[in-house]
């Protein structure tokens, strides 16, 4: 099933075309990598899909429902969730509290229920504590639940951020360089997590990544961008042989 359908997405900032007519689809359980040199428009693509940048033209649909004009929190609530290149954890909150923020929209109880400490709010809160702990256990991070997130290693922070992002079971996940700065061991663990999310839970994953071996191993399809536009699209094998890609990365032979 097609989860994400991006059609002719363009972003122009006063004369500069950051994203130029990009189209692609993302299927259930698939991993699609977005690669390209610096300034290719990968991050702008992510920001446009997740609502942080308003597209100049083009549309984004999630399971047939249009997301294009929604705000970031509305898009997240619809089920497209993302991580951030430079880390989006809340350093002063504990690991458990961080994961629980990912369950915000899943927690019941109105403002008044919370204020008065009514049982509806308390019960839902208790369920989410339990759920957050279970999710941390799946990643063998449960012993870290009460640690300040800011005190974790870089690799652990990336993992907690992913746990937080998938806590609400979103159908689509946008990962912005999840392996940057990670040790080889942590990278392998990240690969494993991406495989599990796509393979076992059927999450559609859009992945920006510079680590070529990770992209080749994890992606079902690759979108190659340069100067805001799509220059190639295909399976990892096809991309490896593509002349336009070689030129974009290495210059003309």
């Amino acid at each position: 099933m097609t989860l994400l359908d991006v059609k002719g997405l363009s972003v122009r900032f006063s004369g500069l075309t950051a994203l130029d007519d990009v189209s692609f689809t993302l299927e259930e359980g698939n991993v699609r990598a977005v690669i390209g040199p610096n300034g290719a428009g990968k991050s702008t693509l992510f920001n446009a899909i997740s609502g942080y940048v308003t597209p100049t033209s083009g549309t984004v649909f999630l399971k047939g429902q249009e997301l294009t004009q929604l705000t970031p929190h509305e898009i997240a609530e619809q089920g497209v969730r993302r991580t951030f290149q430079n880390g989006g954890l809340f350093p002063a909150l504990t690991v458990l509290e961080n994961v629980m923020t990912g369950l915000h929209a899943q927690t019941e109880g109105s403002f008044l229920d919370i204020l008065l400490g009514r049982s509806a709010a308390l019960k839902s809160e208790a369920e989410n504590i339990h759920r957050a702990r279970e999710l941390l256990k799946l990643m063998s991070m449960d012993h870290m639940a009460d640690t300040r997130a800011g005190d974790l290693s870089g690799g652990q922070q990336r993992i907690v951020e992913i746990v937080r992002t998938v806590a609400s079971d979103p159908p689509v996940l946008l990962l912005d360089e999840p392996a940057v700065g990670l040790s080889p061991v942590a990278r392998a663990q990240m690969m494993e997590i991406i495989h599990r999310l796509a393979g076992e839970k059927g999450v559609g994953i859009l992945l920006i990544e510079h680590a070529v071996e990770l992209v080749m191993a994890a992606a079902d399809r690759i979108l190659v961008m340069a100067a805001g536009a799509r220059i190639a699209e295909g399976t990892p094998e096809e991309i490896r042989e593509d002349r336009a890609v070689l030129e974009a990365y290495l210059g003309h032979a």
Binding site: S50, Y52, P72, H73, A76, L89, F90, T101, A105, T165
Partner: peptide, 13 residues
């Protein structure tokens, strides 16, 4: 307080 941009990405208004 910690990260307003990331907060919005978690469906928090």
């Amino acid at each position: 307080r910690e990260n307003e941009v990331a907060t919005a990405s978690l469906a928090i208004p």
